[in-house]
């Protein structure tokens, strides 16, 4: 009995310490002199400072703060949250007078569907999902189109003709990144081989924050001759950068491709920036900014908002000057996608 309790306490205390360590710092938001619009932002787990997805939303809010002087309150989901906890978070924001209330991540779908009808005068928005209510803007992204473009860059930049893809949780949302990437690679180099690894099955939340697993997977890919890897894996993407840096990085011809945010300029990735040839930009920042701008201007953005290439909702980053060598190829394909000459499928063919 006592032995068991001791083991249990130690394990439990350890997990708590880890949980406390992994949580990011809350960013203080300064209040403006005359706030007109109060923005409520509910992040998915990881929150501001996760280095990709949530940070992209944070960038959009920061821009809105700078341009409109809106007041912002940011709250963040815990890993263990179910629909009731997420619903309560949105409900609290709405009942405190925040408008718009923006839910970052598809995990808020059911919660928002429940809460949105309770506050018909509040504008809600959800990233990466569709909620059918008159006061909700559903912000979805053509990630396959942006992934196609970084795929063409990967195929052009690879010397070995072997490229890699690291996915987070194995769900359709991420498979769209993989599908677009593979089509882009094959468009430039039909003979290229693509190694694929996912960090966890559907339902395994640790897949988004397992840099150790990603590092091992990328090391394995490098051993097989892969010299450029694209990671769409949230916080796990850090492991890809570590493995590429360990292999010698760009000096030895190994490159990584970031996702969601422009990882080349992210402080969280400063250590690895020389190895980041480009990033697939999923402009969650633009979408979040547009939602806030809509409320500020009195014309809220509602309904399904598809942020695709022609709307500037996805793309690739040119922050690293190295990418200019491949830009003409990528831009050529971008034109073809925009004018409909090429249709990028969001599902895997096999």
């Amino acid at each position: 009995m006592r032995r068991v309790i001791k083991i249990a306490s130690v394990l439990f205390a350890g997990s708590l310490v880890l949980a406390a360590c992994s949580s990011s710092d809350e960013a203080a938001v300064e209040e403006n002199a005359a706030p007109v619009v109060k923005v409520g932002l509910a992040y998915d787990s990881g929150g501001r400072g996760d280095g990709t997805f949530n940070d992209a939303a944070a960038a959009g809010v920061d821009r809105a703060v700078a341009e409109f002087g809106v007041e912002v309150n940011e709250v963040e989901a815990a890993d263990a949250d179910g629909t009731p906890e997420r619903a309560e978070r949105l409900r609290l924001l709405a009942s405190e007078g925040y408008n718009p209330v923006i839910a970052v991540g598809f995990a808020y779908s059911d919660a928002l569907a429940e809460v949105a009808p309770e506050f018909p005068d509040t504008t809600f928005a959800i990233v990466d999902s569709v909620v059918d209510a008159p006061n909700v803007g559903s912000l979805i992204f053509a990630a396959e189109q942006g992934s196609f473009l970084v795929g063409t860059i990967a195929a052009s930049a690879s010397k070995s003709g072997k490229v890699g893809f690291i996915g987070g949780m194995e769900i359709d949302l991420i498979k769209a990144f993989q599908a677009g990437f593979e089509q882009g690679v094959k468009a430039v180099n039909p003979a290229a081989t693509i190694s694929v690894a996912y960090m966890g099955p559907a339902g395994d939340n640790s897949a988004w924050n397992a840099p150790d697993r990603a590092k091992t997977a990328v090391e394995g890919m490098i051993d097989k001759g892969v010299d450029i890897v694209y990671a769409a894996a949230g916080g796990s993407g850090l492991g890809m950068h570590q493995a590429i840096a360990a292999a010698g990085g760009s000096a030895k011809g190994y490159w990584g491709i970031g996702v969601d945010s422009d990882e080349y300029v992210l402080p969280a990735r400063a250590e690895f920036k020389e190895n980041i040839v480009t990033s697939m930009l999923k402009r969650v920042d633009t979408a979040v900014f547009d939602v806030i701008a809509g409320v500020v201007n009195g014309s809220p953005l509602t309904g399904i908002q598809n942020f695709d290439l022609s709307r500037g909702g996805v793309g690739y980053s040119s922050s690293n000057p190295v990418v200019s060598a491949f830009a003409s190829v990528a831009d050529g394909y971008a034109e073809k996608i925009k004018n409909g000459e090429i249709t990028v499928s969001s599902t895997l063919t096999e």
Binding site: S109, V130, L173
Partner: peptide
């Protein structure tokens, strides 16, 4: 089944 966009 897909219960919402991106949710299975």
């Amino acid at each position: 089944v897909q219960t919402a966009e991106n949710v299975v």
